[in-house]
Design a protein around this nucleic acid. Sequence first.
DNA 1: CTTGACCTTCCCGTGACTGGAAGCCCTATC
DNA 2: GATAGGGCTTCCAGTCACGGGAAGGTCAAG
Lengths: 132, 132
Amino acid sequence: MNIKDAAAASGLPAKTIRYYEEIGLIRPARGDNGYRDFSEADAHKLTFLARARGLGFAIEDCRALLALWEDRDRASADVKRLAEAHLDEIDRKIAELTGLRASLSDLVRRCHGDGRPDCPILTDLAGRAETV
Amino acid sequence: MNIKDAAAASGLPAKTIRYYEEIGLIRPARGDNGYRDFSEADAHKLTFLARARGLGFAIEDCRALLALWEDRDRASADVKRLAEAHLDEIDRKIAELTGLRASLSDLVRRCHGDGRPDCPILTDLAGRAETV
DNA sequence: CTTGACCTTCCCGTGACTGGAAGCCCTATC
DNA sequence: GATAGGGCTTCCAGTCACGGGAAGGTCAAG
């Protein structure tokens, strides 16, 4: 199938599929006219990649997961290790954002937000003393 | 003061300060030798920028906040609006990550993670049926 | 006068694409 | 056979907010 059909089958934009080929995640065949010719297996790989990316795995993690997927003798522990590392990363990001949210939300709460110029948000950003 | 002192005062790397000048966030004076010469006001601006970035504001938001900070007649409502938009963005990201976390954590929980090859994480990524 | 720390500009690389230009290919219609 | 359109190809540039490193000028100390 052509790239547009592979895109429709996987849910990935054609541009992204070309990019995945460029970085070696997939290797579709080529027709005499130079067009990429995707097999069903290629389409499945693309769907796999789309799901893994959708779960937030980085490209290099996806490459590793794809290799594990294609290895009939893999140990599920290897997969689990990757997933757990990613889970930790997600937890780290959530914690960071939650901290930011708390600080910012406190500032927003304290700002009356009317036509007057005095604003605790700016005061805080300036260092809790400046007025410039 | 030279860039290193401005960096120490603001907590920003010298590279970042040069970048901020390049994109027009600050305009430090120049000495006869071509060195940047930061005033106290410049240093305060850098500190302001460091804090705003630390709260996750994008560069263009920082530019707007800096302009508001320097405008004695600003309305605090303008600042609050920016901050609230950013807060919404943070909430959106937290929600997205929380959703990812739930899916991934469920997969990890169901994966026995031993030496055997069958793994619900890969099965799920492949589309809940494939074995390849 | 040399050393070494500082400063300058310039260019490349990051992650994971996205947009757009220039040009070939295929099918359908007139 | 000519033409119109859509699809395909490659390549280049841009995104965001810097960071690394090279090549070279400047300054203070010994």
